[in-house]
């Protein structure tokens, strides 16, 4: 894959422009509500060296990893079931899409009441966000597997499980990966969002707590960390995604 000069230089220039806007905004507004990019990075480094910060980071990481695992497994299972069963797919697809487009935050109190205030409610909320794209992409991918592959499987008298494992899954892999990539982002959004409401630990809690204390440093540093983490991982996943789609 060869990139042209503009494809490399362009995004770098845009990043520089964004930093410049941030710096100018800081000069305009001042210390009351903003920090400069330099100050924010320095404070983020300082936060990372504080022992009191790590429990929050670990809490968010734990919730996120568990939610991602549940979202992936649940999404794959539902997606394969709905993709291979035609009627089931037709019945449930609009419901999944509806669930995708409603403000799911409002469902969070229900999860809090069912799971209690703590890690499991956050995990459930993250998974609730993440499983939908995984299921939708997997379902469409399983539906679009070329019929000749499935016929070959039937001719070879493969069991249903073997058909899924050896034919549907490999054939649908690029699409499934796209679903997992989107699921990754949404799980992270869900986990952080859950922490921002009624939580006692985690990065989302730190953000909300800092509003009351007017800790602009904390808000900017934590926001920067979250945005950078999400952007870098999603960028890497996007590269793998494009590679997979090109190969098939």
């Amino acid at each position: 894959m060869s990139l042209t000069r503009i494809e490399i230089l362009g995004p770098i220039l845009v990043s520089v422009a964004l930093l410049a806007i941030w710096q100018c905004a800081y000069w305009l507004i001042g210390d009351i509500a903003l920090r400069s990019p330099g100050q924010t990075v320095r404070f983020a480094g300082e936060l990372l060296s504080r022992p009191t910060f790590w429990p929050h980071l670990v809490e968010t990481a734990k919730a996120f990893v568990a939610a991602l695992a549940i979202a992936s497994l649940l999404g794959l299972t539902i997606g394969l079931l709905l993709g291979l069963g035609k009627t089931a797919g037709d019945v449930f697809e609009p419901m999944l899409i509806a669930l995708y487009s409603i403000p799911k935050v409002t469902l969070y109190p229900i999860l809090l009441l069912s799971f209690g205030l703590g890690l499991s409610a956050k995990i459930a909320f993250g998974a609730l966000h993440g499983f939908i794209p995984v299921a939708l992409f997997t379902m469409n991918a399983a539906r679009n597997v070329r019929p000749i592959f499935l016929k070959t499987g039937r001719v070879m008298k493969l069991s249903r499980w073997d058909v899924v494992r050896k034919i549907v899954f490999p054939a649908a892999l690029p699409e499934i990966f796209t679903g997992l990539r989107v699921g990754f982002s949404l799980t992270m959004i869900g986990t952080v969002l859950g922490e921002m409401f009624a939580s006692q630990r985690g990065l989302g809690y730190l953000l909300m707590n800092a509003i009351g204390l007017h800790h602009v440093d904390v808000i900017m540093a934590v926001t920067l960390m979250l945005v950078l983490f999400a952007a870098v991982i999603s960028f890497a996943l996007l590269a793998i995604d494009r590679h997979l789609h090109k190969r098939f």
Partner: peptide, 29 residues
């Protein structure tokens, strides 16, 4: 065209960023 090529990677990763995490900062501002 040049601006578009420069912005494309940002559009592609935009929805991975938890936008609501900016809410506290906006409240301060």
């Amino acid at each position: 065209a040049a601006l578009r090529t420069s912005l494309d990677p940002f559009f592609a990763t935009y929805y991975a960023v938890p936008v609501l995490a900016f809410y506290p900062l906006l409240i301060i501002l």
